[in-house]
Structures are given as C-alpha cells and as structure tokens.
Amino acid sequence: MIHGVGIDLVEIKRIKEWYDKRPTMVNKILTDNELEIFNKINLDNRKVEFISGRFAVKEAFTKAMGTGIGKKYGFHSINCLPDENGKPEIACDGFHVHTSITHTEKYAEAIVIIEKDNNKQE
C-alpha cells in the first residue's frame, strides 16, 4: 500500500552559490556515508550535482512521509546510498522506499514513493 509520494526540484545554481560561499554546508546535508562518496568525486560540477541530488531526494522523502525536513526526519537521519548498480536507495524501517534522482544542467530533481511494509508494524 502506498504511504506517500514526494517530489522535489532544486536549482543547481542555488546550491553551487551556497557551496561556493560555505563549502562546509555539505556537512549539514550529507551523512557520513554520503560524505565518503562525495569526497571521492574529483569534478567540482559533479560534487555540486551530488549535493543537489541528495538535497532533493531528502526533501522528497520527507514530503512522501508527510513530515517535512526537521520535524521527524532531518538531513542526517536520511541516508541515500547507491545500490550495487548505482541506483539511489533510502532504507527506512517499516517501509519500502523507491527513489529516483535526475539532473540537467540547471536542475536536480528527485521523486520518492513510499510503500508500507506489510510484514512490519509501525
């Protein structure tokens, strides 16, 4: 059963300006596991795309959960890591989370569909 659907669109230019002014802002958005991936990226543009995508997917996740960032879920409580094929995944106890992130030159967009796990109690 679908619990919720969330979508978020981020202007990459806005994230780049934020990152250029305060590079440590990544520590507010990315978890330690995500930072490991981020730190292995060599191209600055790709780094900004990564931050933008993770920002968007976390916003989309909280929209799908119906909470918004900062209430029940914060940026550090949502860990979005690639599976063995590179597909972004978010693990959340009691739910099955479907995620997708896409980028263009100007935007990063994410969609999240959350299903209740019928085998677990909330």
Rank of each mutant, 00 (worst) to 15 (best):
D83N: 13
F61P: 02
L9V: 11
H96M: 09
V10S: 00
I111V: 15
K72A: 09
E36T: 11
G74Y: 05
Q121E: 10
I7M: 08
F38N: 01
H103S: 05
K16R: 13
C92D: 11
G6S: 11
R14K: 10
L43N: 14
C80I: 02
E34I: 02
Q121Y: 11
H96T: 09
E109M: 12
P23V: 09
F38M: 04
T99I: 08
L30P: 01
N45R: 11
G68M: 06
T62K: 03
T31G: 05
V57F: 02
Q121L: 13
N27I: 07
N27T: 09
D32Q: 08
K16G: 10
S52F: 00
R22F: 06
E34K: 04
K21L: 13
K13D: 12
D32E: 10
V57R: 00
S100G: 11
I114H: 06
I78T: 00
S100C: 15
A56W: 02
M25D: 04
D44N: 15
N85S: 15
T24F: 02
H96F: 12
G6H: 04
D93W: 08
R54C: 04
V5H: 10
E11D: 14
V26H: 00
E36M: 14
I78L: 05
A110W: 01
K40F: 08
R46P: 07
F61W: 04
E17R: 11
K87L: 11
D117Q: 09
E36C: 13
E49P: 03
W18K: 07
N85Y: 15
V48T: 03
K47E: 08
K120T: 06
Y73N: 06
T102D: 09
N79W: 02
T31S: 09
G6V: 04
K28N: 12
K47V: 09
L9F: 05
D83A: 10
I90C: 06
K21P: 01
P23R: 09
H103D: 11
